[in-house]
Design a protein around this nucleic acid. Structure first.
Lengths: 202, 202
DNA sequence: GACTAAAACGAACGTTCGTACTATTTTAAT
DNA sequence: ATTAAAATAGTACGAACGTTCGTTTTAGTC
């Protein structure tokens, strides 16, 4: 069907606009103008603005996974993959995968006090993301790459915080050292919890 | 003058609303309703919506300084004051000084891609904040409390990131361990850079 | 208590928002 | 080529947006 293709291209653009203007700033009229469609024609693809927001979040999540997770899965589980996720995240900011910075950081702060289906969806995805980080950390423990007393939730919290901090410094403060600072902090933290390679070898 | 008092009470409410709904979501009509004023009466205190936003940011900044900095200045400069700022920040989140979470974290992410006077004001204040953190760190170095090889910009980046991470985990994820995790991370980081007390004594 | 300036109000402006309903065109299947 | 379905456009609506205007109320001064 043609409709599905159109819907997809609407959502690609919607994701970009929402990363720049926020999910509330994402407006049907503006989106239609940009895509040279009629408001009503665009609207027909979604039943409501809320549905458009939810679909946009879904599309953003697919882009996020494709850009950050899929490449990292090429690395062997354990420390290498964990590090690859971190590198992937920083490169995702540097490359401007979303033109307005990390879609989910922005959405998290925009909706952290706006209860409703949109908030729940964002929270769910952020739970998934933190959960995935924790899983990668746990794998690194299981492989013997990280010390056994590492608390996956704690470390996931810290890494995610550093990522958000990088996004903030990079996009708002235009600190061109933002990525480097985040990388330095991430590497220092991970190295401090690492089990030296010779201790793992057998 | 009565006008100044009214203006002040408008701004107090505007700060709360903006922390919940964002600076764009802050609406003159809604604000007037909440304060049982007419739109036009309220509007007259500010020449435009943008001026209202700028004044709101100013008011938020005063609250921020009052809640976070002023108390920390009671501590002696150096490590104690630096730690007090960190504790102050976490308590500021826990106490819900802004009902929708940290005003400036939210504003930073909302306006990081919206050029204009509002963005510039936010960026300026965030530069001030990071600068103040760096100054506190430098003092701790000067006092001999932190190792001389500490990079103030790097450490300020890391601390700020942990604060934003705490805000995120606390307000969006409802992680009731958010504050504890952030505190643990902050303390571990600061302790790792600390010069033991006996080395400082003379 | 009268006068005046500041402050608040009420109504209206033009615009844009999301949404609903109807008509037309385009697409895909026969 | 015909036809049914799907996709898009068109038009209209009420509500809310920021803003302007003229009027009324309030507060402070003589």
């Amino acid at each position: 069907m043609k409709g599905e293709r159109t819907r997809q291209s609407i959502l690609e653009r919607a994701v970009d606009v929402a990363s720049l203007e926020g999910l509330e700033g994402l407006t049907i009229g503006r989106l239609a103008d940009e895509l040279k469609m009629s408001k009503s024609g665009l609207f027909a693809h979604f039943g409501s603005k809320e549905d458009l927001q939810l679909a946009t979040i879904q599309a953003a999540s697919e882009r996020y996974i494709r850009e950050i997770f899929t490449p990292a899965l090429l690395q062997p589980r354990g420390f290498p993959r964990l590090m690859a996720i971190c590198e992937s995240w920083l490169s995702y900011i540097r490359r401007g995968v979303f033109p307005g910075g990390c879609f989910f950081a922005a959405a998290s702060f925009e909706f952290d006090s706006r209860p409703g289906p949109v908030q729940e969806r964002i929270r769910g995805l952020m739970d998934d993301w933190i959960g995935a980080l924790e899983r990668a950390i746990r794998m690194a423990k299981d492989e013997g790459h990280l010390r056994p007393d590492v608390d996956p939730s704690q470390l996931a919290f810290e890494l995610n915080a550093l990522f958000f901090g990088a996004n903030f410094a990079f996009y708002l403060r235009h600190d061109e050292q933002a990525i480097a600072r985040a990388r330095r902090a991430v590497e220092a933290r991970l190295e401090s919890l690492r089990v030296p390679a010779e201790a793992t070898a057998r």
